[in-house]
Every structure is written in structure tokens, then in C-alpha cells.
């Protein structure tokens, strides 16, 4: 049994949250109820990106992923909510 340090416990918890939220995203049937679980998944992935390497530039990649996936989720939500209304 190898020793698990505190940082490895943190990143394992982040990855476990990511896998559980991915399963819940896929198992959910309503499209609007999928989006909060997608946000949980992107927060978990951003946290695990920041903890993956001991490098100060890693936080820049995590911030870029965070900004990008928040923008994407907002675009999906606004297009799904107001898309059919724009056509009439």
C-alpha cells in the first residue's frame, strides 16, 4: 500500500466528482436539467487541471478552460431557451 499525499487526495476527489457528474449528465433525460451537472463537471475538471502538475503556468490553462467552458455552457443555455422564439 503506497502512501497517498494530500494533493493526490484533492485531485482524486476532483476526478471522482467529475466522473459522477458525467454519469448524471448522461443519465438525465431533460435537456435543461443536464446543464447544472455540466457546470459541476467543468468545475471539477478545472480544479483537477490546476492540481495536475506542479507548474505555475498550469493555473493559466485552468483559467482558460474555466472561461471557455462557462462561455460554451451559457451559449447552449441561451440558444436552447430563446432559439425558437427568435424565428417568429
Amino acid at each position: 500500500m503506497e502512501v497517498i499525499t494530500t494533493q493526490e487526495i484533492a485531485i482524486l476527489v476532483c476526478a471522482a466528482i467529475g466522473v459522477i457528474s458525467a454519469v448524471r449528465v448522461i443519465a438525465e433525460r431533460n435537456t435543461m436539467k443536464k446543464l447544472p451537472f455540466l457546470n459541476v463537471l467543468s468545475f471539477a475538471i478545472a480544479g483537477s487541471l490546476a492540481l495536475l502538475l506542479p507548474d505555475p503556468l498550469t493555473i493559466l490553462a485552468a483559467a482558460a478552460y474555466f472561461v471557455g467552458t462557462t462561455l460554451e455552457s451559457n451559449a447552449i443555455a441561451s440558444s436552447y431557451a430563446g432559439g425558437p422564439k427568435n424565428d417568429e
Partner: peptide, 27 residues
């Protein structure tokens, strides 16, 4: 939405290789 799950699984492999500029650009 499922494609976004796939992208979230692919980005940590790029960061793990140490290519942080590529990971930023792709993200």
C-alpha cells in the same frame, strides 16, 4: 452537451504531457 463531456475528458491528457500553451489554446 455530451460533446462537452468528451472535451472535458480530453483536456487533462494535454496538460499531463506538459504542453501548457497548447492546452490553453485548445481550451
Amino acid at each position: 452537451i455530451s460533446l462537452s463531456v468528451l472535451i472535458g475528458g480530453a483536456i487533462p491528457f494535454i496538460v499531463d504531457r506538459g504542453l501548457l500553451d497548447v492546452a490553453t489554446a485548445v481550451a
